[in-house]
């Protein structure tokens, strides 16, 4: 950096046209002094500022990528607990005496363990982990929270989005839990949950371990703040999911029921294979 900062800026001597044979004397910093200096301080200040900002953005992004957290976490929300006033106001089934809810809504991140706890088996419709107003005058009131999602302060959680909003008789499949007890003990054994990340090759897109019926809106469970954290997708901006991810178990291919088609299928000759390709 030049120390000659007292020299004022002056246009170079018009008569002193540099000859082509002149090699600029790079060892001196005279060309940087004066006019150049404030600007260069500025540049450096700006540059380092930008570098610092960039570094900060990078770090934040990296951190988010590694550990997707509720953006409100920085406010240190209170530990999840059943909201007391709810328990009193709930129109509980008359025989109930104590607290009702099992999977208490309130922790801010949905975990896979809690996800499965709400389901009798993988693929079953989850039970409703919060109480509902039964007689509320609207059959699809659930969609007011579950069609778009959003933060629900009452439960300190994000409402999960339904992957099948066109089915509007919600309580036909999803029911609340008004007690933890059973009528008689059950010997029910659920089968093991689908394993995650059964990729064919290292780095392959993992196959879909669940059925696609009523679950074609991948973003509803795999992206967004209400997503289950273990299956949150690192690339939600890519929206043609089925281009890379395929179901692992195939259901039998669709069969036409008409007898004509069945007869055709039965008598079909084996497919004509494409010509044998020589290895390059």
């Amino acid at each position: 950096m030049s120390t000659q900062n007292t020299q004022h800026t002056d246009a170079p001597n018009p008569s002193a046209t540099p000859s082509p044979t002149d090699t600029p004397n790079l060892s001196t910093t005279s060309s940087l002094s004066g006019e150049g200096f404030t600007v260069s301080y500025g540049f450096i200040a700006i540059a380092s500022g930008m570098m610092l900002m960039g570094a900060w953005v990078l770090v934040t992004l990296v951190l988010q990528g590694i550990d997707p957290q509720d953006p409100h976490k920085s406010h240190n929300p209170p530990k999840a607990a059943p909201v007391p006033h709810l328990a009193a106001a709930l129109p509980a089934t008359p025989t109930l005496t104590n607290a009702l809810l099992s999977a208490t809504p309130g922790s801010s991140v949905r975990s896979l363990q809690r996800f499965y706890k709400q389901r009798a088996y993988s693929g079953a419709p989850p039970h409703i982990p919060h109480d509902i107003l039964e007689h509320n005058g609207q059959i699809d009131a659930c969609l007011s929270c579950h069609s778009q999602g959003g933060y629900v302060p009452k439960y300190n959680a994000f409402a999960p989005i339904t992957p099948h909003p066109t089915y509007t008789n919600c309580v036909q499949c999803h029911v609340p839990q008004r007690t933890q007890s059973t009528f008689r003990p059950s010997a029910w054994k659920a089968s093991p949950r689908p394993q995650l990340r059964r990729t064919a090759l290292a780095g392959s897109p993992p196959p879909i371990p669940h059925d696609l019926h009523m679950r074609t809106d991948c973003n509803a469970c795999h992206a967004g703040p209400a997503a289950v954290k273990e299956i949150r997708v690192p690339h939600p901006e890519r929206s043609n999911c089925l281009q890379c991810h395929v179901p692992r178990k195939q259901v039998p291919p669709f069969r036409s029921l008409s007898p004509l088609h069945q007869r055709l299928e039965k008598n079909a000759p084996p497919p004509t294979p494409s010509p044998q390709r020589k290895r390059p």
């Binding site: 089934t93 008359p94 025989t95 036909q172 008004r178 007690t179 059973t182 009528f183 059950s186 029910w188």
Partner: peptide, 25 residues
């Protein structure tokens, strides 16, 4: 009711259904 079939001998032994509607009223 939706959750229970007839006299409940089957559905009351299904935990999800019993827990949704545990008793009559």
């Amino acid at each position: 009711v939706l959750e229970h079939w007839h006299t409940g001998s089957m559905t009351r032994r299904i935990p999800t259904l019993h827990q949704a509607v545990p008793a009559s009223y």
